[in-house]
Design a binder for these strands. Structure first.
Lengths: 130, 130
DNA sequence: TTTAGAAATGAGAATCATTCTCAAATAACT
DNA sequence: AGTTATTTGAGAATGATTCTCATTTCTAAA
């Protein structure tokens, strides 16, 4: 039996929240953002469902920033910038992801490539001004 | 006064260990590898010195794999492959890092780029065979 | 609609990587 | 040797994440 969107209210609220933000939030940030609409949601439920979505390939993990895992509902290949000053994570939609590299990697290493992550770090404009 | 290599035996042992391996180890892996030569070294000292080297730019962090931070003494730009099966981290020396992207990022985003990380994930040859 | 079984959730405990504290050891410089 | 600054070991503290289990919510069939 298929799951309808309405059946698991908390679950879909978590996914909707992640899909409607560009902040690449952590589990705790998602929990905070949901607080107004779902004040009774548990942090464990947020963690649980983010893990589930991740294993299902519905969302991606961007790795950890300052020891905290960050998530992205946009699973299309794109580039990120992480500010070492304020820990913001931003998309860099203008930057091309070199898709042909996947082939190179598989050829030269014998590894089967399932994902690719290109991330720049440095100071965002806001943090440079300070 | 400069620090000679011999002054801080534990510290330089940690750096030497990281420089002499291609396994991109975690703090605990470094601690284990040092056990024969330095059975009295503390895990806290390994963590402490890896953090120090990182802030000094002598080593790089590759981010976390399964919740554990991995380190690399090779600070030259190069590409990594992380196996989702066995958590091995490998260099991909054959793959070119597109250096000119740094300029593109700074131009289009206004961010000051200080680092760049290109990482592929998937299954290594060993894990594909299983 | 009721009911039984399955899945999801909340609350808080447990886990585990990492950082911190502080006293002891070691090194540098007189 | 004596004095001071740095490094270290041991274990406690921290903090993000996961786990447990009782409760709630949903599903499917009667």
């Amino acid at each position: 039996m298929e799951q309808s969107a309405r059946q698991f209210r908390k679950r879909s609220a978590i996914l909707d929240c992640l899909r409607s933000t560009k902040s690449h939030p952590s589990a705790e940030m998602v929990h905070d953002m949901l607080h107004d609409e779902h004040p009774d949601i548990s942090l464990a439920t947020v963690y649980r469902n983010l893990s589930l979505f991740k294993t299902q390939g519905m969302i991606r993990s961007l790795g950890t920033v300052n020891g905290v895992e960050r998530f992205d509902a946009d699973t299309h290949p794109h580039v990120h910038f992480i500010c070492t000053g304020c820990a913001r994570v931003m998309d860099l939609p203008e930057v091309e992801v070199p898709q042909e590299l996947n082939q190179d990697v598989e050829k030269s290493s014998g590894c089967r490539v399932e994902g690719c992550q290109l991330t720049f770090t440095g100071l965002c404009g806001r943090c440079q001004a300070q």
